[in-house]
Structures are given as C-alpha cells and as structure tokens.
C-alpha cells in the first residue's frame, strides 16, 4: 500500500532518533515499574489478609453493594452488622437510613475505607470492582443473583461467612419447598407464551420503549417454574421491542412489571388500558395483561418468591399459599 510508505519518513534526524529511543526507554521503564508495583501490591494484600484473618471470628461490619445483597443480609438477620448500603436501597426501611457508599458501578472508596467494613458483599456482575477493594485491604464476597439457584445459594454463602448457617438453611428450604409446590400446582396445565415487560414509558397514551426479559436474568427461570414459556426466545439479555416485534411474538399473556411510583401516578386499570392500543395481540384481545407493581419484582433478593407468586397467579390463576416463615415475615417488613 502506497498510503503511508514514504521513504523520507524513515530518514530520521539525530533528534528524531533520540525521541524514538526515549519512547522505547519509557515503555521499558514503565513495564519494570509495573512489575515492581504488582509485587508490592501482592505483598500488601497478603499482609492485609494475614492481619484480618482472625481465625474463628465472624465479620462484624458488612457492606451490601447492591439492593438485593442488602436485603439478603437483612433477611439473614445480619441487619445490625450492615454499616453501608447501595444508593438504590429502599428496603427494608432500616437499611434505607444507613450510609450510602455508591451505586451499582461507582463506589466511593474513601467513604468505604472510613466505614471499615470487614467484608463487602457484591454481585458477580460487579466483579470489575473487586481488584480495587483487594488493593485497599477490604475483603469481598461475590454472589450470583442472575439465576434462581444463585439467589438461593447466596444465602448459604453469606451465612457460611457470618456464622448463621442454620437460619440460611431454613430460608433455603423455605424457598426450595415453595418453588416445588408452585411447580406441582401448575403441572399438567398448558404452557402459554408469556412476555415479561420490565420497562415501558408510562407518560404517553400507549406503552412505548418496551424492554422485556430476554435471555438474561432470573425472571425467565421464574416464568418456567410458574408454568409458562418466554415469548421472546432470542439471544439478547433485555431486548427492546417495537410494535412489529410484539406482533411477531404475539404473546398469550403479558406481565407488566412496574414500580410502585408508577402505580401511585396512574391506577392499575389505567396502566392495563394502555396496552389496549395493541389490540392485535392475543394477550390484549383475551384480556390477559397482568400488572404487577413493586420494587421487589426487579430485585433478585429474598423477596423474589413474591414475583414467582405473581407469575403463577397471572398465568394459571394458581395461588400457592405461603407458609408463615422467615421470608414471609421479611416481606411483611417484620425484621428481627
């Protein structure tokens, strides 16, 4: 290619050669510097680990870096040990008043150090933050809240760290048992195609900017447990659908998850009525649009059974009674 080949370009003056040598030296020096820094950081991290691993002692100060983790900590009865929470935490009320140390991806590391947590509990999707925590000597525990099994095992993982495994075992049993009962109750029924809408604009006369559950997240699994199949079966985690996409998918049922704030502004009937514009859809024709409100439907934490109940009731009209146990109390705001 003649584009950049210009012989005179390679005829460098002595100053030019000096610059080239400097550039090379800079990269070599930086490489050596980085190796040294990494070695030093590793030593530092080892020293932190040694000092903090007081054998047999459970952490006394915890930070939940996502709303679902904060809820999990409180459900496990560790609320009094939580010293900092995610900015978007709103439940339980006691957690909402605690110091906020950041959002999902932005963390005030200085504030974090001042709070002196023994452990920070975060989501696996926040893994890009782990390295910095390690550098400043804060231990982390990552849990996976992207699947039902991940949510269930997050209780035991956190409990193992904090020494209240009995309670965690009770919670896990409660969840597994309830899931099994829902599964049994919908067995043998048809499996309608359901679209779970997690966001659409509500300040206009029809649902626009519709974002639905796709291949990602735990909603899809909940849907299958509740006896439905996801009407969207493409590869995108949370796809945005146009009217034409909706017509092609033509779901039998639409479950519209909305925040409490939206329901405060517009009634449920009004929200349901918005979908009437899409009268060509079977779900709308057959009046199978379900509005489910509440922040818990967006949080893969201890209240996710409520979402499962909404799904099974919306799809098959089945209402599986919850036993009055730990999570039930937690959902009702009764926190020990």
């Amino acid at each position: 290619m003649k584009l950049f080949v210009n012989k005179s370009l390679f005829r460098l003056s002595s100053g030019g050669w000096f610059v080239v040598v400097c550039v090379l030296v800079l990269f070599v020096l930086s490489h050596l510097g980085r190796s040294w820094v990494r070695g030093w950081s590793a030593e530092q991290a080892a020293m932190y680990a040694e000092k903090r691993s007081d054998a047999g002692q459970f952490p006394e100060r915890l930070v939940g870096l996502s709303p679902s983790n904060v809820e999990t900590l409180f459900a496990l009865g560790l609320g009094d040990k939580v010293v900092g929470v995610n900015r978007y935490t709103s439940y339980p009320a006691a957690a909402a008043d605690l110091p906020k140390i950041g959002g999902m991806v932005d963390v005030d590391f200085e504030q974090m150090l001042i709070l002196k947590p023994d452990y920070v509990v975060l989501l696996e999707s926040q893994r890009s933050l782990v390295q910095k925590f390690e550098e400043i000597g804060i231990k982390t525990l990552s849990v996976n809240h992207e699947s039902v099994e991940g949510i269930v095992s997050s209780f035991s993982e956190i409990a193992k760290l904090c020494g209240n495994e009995e309670r965690a075992a009770a919670i896990c049993d409660e969840i597994r048992e309830h899931i099994e009962r829902v599964r049994e109750s919908v067995e043998g029924r048809g499996r309608p195609r359901v679209l779970i809408c997690i966001h659409h604009s509500t300040d206009v006369s029809q649902p626009e900017q519709i974002i639905v559950c796709g291949s990602g997240g735990y909603h899809r699994e909940l849907l299958e447990i509740a006896g439905g199949v996801n009407a969207y079966d493409g590869p995108v985690a949370f796809p945005k659908l146009s009217r034409e996409n909706l017509i092609n998918l033509n779901p039998d049922i639409i479950i519209d998850l909305v925040n409490k704030k939206v329901v405060n502004e517009r009634s449920r009937d009004e929200l349901k009525g918005l979908w009437n514009v899409y009268g060509e859809l079977d779900a709308v024709k057959n009046r199978r649009v379900v509005i489910a409100d509440g922040a818990e439907h967006f949080l893969p934490g201890p209240r996710f059974l409520k979402t499962l109940d909404v799904f099974s009731e919306g799809i098959h009209g089945v209402k599986v009674e919850r036993k009055s146990t730990i999570l039930k109390h937690f959902e009702e705001g009764d926190i020990e």
């Binding site: 990494r38 932005d106 963390v107 893994r127 890009s128 933050l129 590869p235 985690a237």
Partner: peptide, 24 residues
C-alpha cells in the same frame, strides 16, 4: 448484546473511570 456484568463494566468505563486508579 453483552451480559449484565460486562455491560456494567462498559457503562462504568464509558462514564469516565478515574475512581479505580492505582499505581499500576
């Protein structure tokens, strides 16, 4: 097309991410 974790990472970084600076 990304999963949530990678998407977070990219959003964080697109916002201009000096917060995680270290000597390295």
């Amino acid at each position: 097309l990304m999963d949530i974790g990678d998407s977070f990472r990219v959003i964080h970084w697109l916002m201009g991410d000096i917060g995680r600076a270290n000597l390295d």
